[in-house]
Amino acid sequence: MIDNSEKKAVSHNDCKSQDTIILEELVQCFKNIAYGEVVVTIHDSRIVQIERREKKRFPPEK
């Protein structure tokens, strides 16, 4: 049987792993966008969604 301290350790490690995944996703969004925006949705102090809106820019024709 798992006592409360072990449950907290397990859930803390799961959160840390999810935090790492979220940070990696954010870094990739920033690296792979030239023009646009990254929108982070937060519920109850937790990131629940990341949106990337990219704009494609083309030079004017001469």
Rank of each mutant, 00 (worst) to 15 (best):
D19Y: 14
I22D: 11
Q49H: 04
K62G: 10
K7W: 05
G36Y: 06
K31N: 10
P59I: 03
E6A: 03
K55R: 06
L23G: 13
E51I: 03
S5N: 09
K62L: 10
I33M: 13
P60Y: 10
K16Q: 13
H43E: 14
I22Y: 11
K62P: 08
N13H: 10
L26K: 10
R46L: 06
K62C: 04
C29V: 12
A9K: 14
I2C: 02
I42K: 03
K8N: 07
R53V: 12
T41L: 01
R57W: 04
P59C: 03
V39D: 09
K31T: 11
D3G: 05
C29R: 13
D44W: 02
T20D: 14
Q18N: 15
A9W: 04
E51S: 03
V27R: 14
Q28T: 14
D44F: 02
L23K: 15
R57E: 06
D14N: 13
R53D: 00
E37S: 09
L23S: 15
K16P: 04
M1V: 10
R53P: 02
I47E: 00
T41S: 07
P59K: 08
S11F: 15
Q18C: 11
K31W: 03
A34H: 12
Q18K: 15
K8A: 09
A34K: 12
T20Y: 13
S5Y: 07
Q18D: 15
F30R: 12
G36N: 01
R57Q: 07
D3E: 10
K31I: 11
E54F: 06
E51M: 01
D3S: 02
R46K: 10
V39G: 05
I22P: 10
E37G: 03
E37R: 08
L23C: 13
K31V: 11
H12F: 09
E54N: 05
V27W: 09
V40K: 01
D44S: 00
I50Y: 03
K8S: 08
P60R: 06
V48F: 01
S5L: 09
E24N: 15
E54G: 09
V40W: 05
S45T: 12
C29I: 01
E61Y: 07
E61G: 06
E6F: 03
P60A: 01
D44P: 01
C15V: 14
R46W: 03
L26H: 09
F30E: 13
S5P: 00
D3M: 01
C15H: 12
N32M: 08
E37F: 02
R46H: 07
F30H: 13
H12A: 13
N32W: 03
K8Q: 10
H43W: 00
S45Y: 07
I2T: 05
L23N: 15
E25V: 13
D44A: 04
R53C: 01
R52E: 00
K31D: 08
E51W: 02
V48I: 10
C15A: 14
K62E: 08
I33V: 15
I42H: 01
K7P: 01
I42G: 05
E54P: 00
R46Q: 06
S17R: 14
V27H: 11
M1S: 11
D3A: 05
N4C: 02
N4E: 09
K16F: 13
L23T: 14
D3F: 06
R52V: 07
V40R: 02
I22T: 15
A9Q: 11
